[in-house]
């Protein structure tokens, strides 16, 4: 892997993980239900940060895929399931129970198999 490819991959990881955690922060902090919840979310930076990260991730992913074959790209990007789970534990005290680890592990393996296939 060249330095440029590594930086593209790192960008995908950072924007994807950061975006998902920002979305969770937005959903958590907004008070109320229905439209009130959306108004509360729109008034905080988290939702907008998440959307910005989503756009940045899209660009980084296109750049990354122009450097590596799709199967390799999917294989390397699926690590985001791990970083997002660890981020959820770190920032939101989400429990890493054996069943959750097994479930996420099976899904990650499945996504990699589909990507390789």
């Amino acid at each position: 892997m060249t330095l440029v490819t590594f930086i593209a991959w790192l960008s995908v990881m950072v924007f994807d993980t950061g975006g998902q955690l920002a979305f969770k922060a937005a959903a958590n902090r907004g008070g109320g239900d229905g439209m009130a919840h959306w108004r509360a979310m729109a008034g905080k930076p988290w939702l907008w940060l998440g959307l910005l990260a989503f756009v940045a991730e899209f660009v980084a992913w296109l750049a990354f895929l122009s450097l590596v074959p799709l199967a390799e790209g999917v294989l390397l990007a699926t690590l985001n399931m791990v970083t997002i789970m660890l981020g959820g534990r770190w920032l939101f005290a989400e429990k890493l129970t054996p069943r959750r680890l097994l479930g996420v592990g099976l899904i990650a393996a499945g996504v990699i198999l589909v990507g390789v296939g």
Binding site: G103, L106, A109, V111, V114
Partner: peptide, 16 residues
């Protein structure tokens, strides 16, 4: 592999 991967994803979601 695509079929196998699809089965693993469904299994993982059932476990979750």
């Amino acid at each position: 592999p695509e079929l196998g991967g699809a089965v693993l994803i469904v299994l993982g979601i059932l476990v979750l």
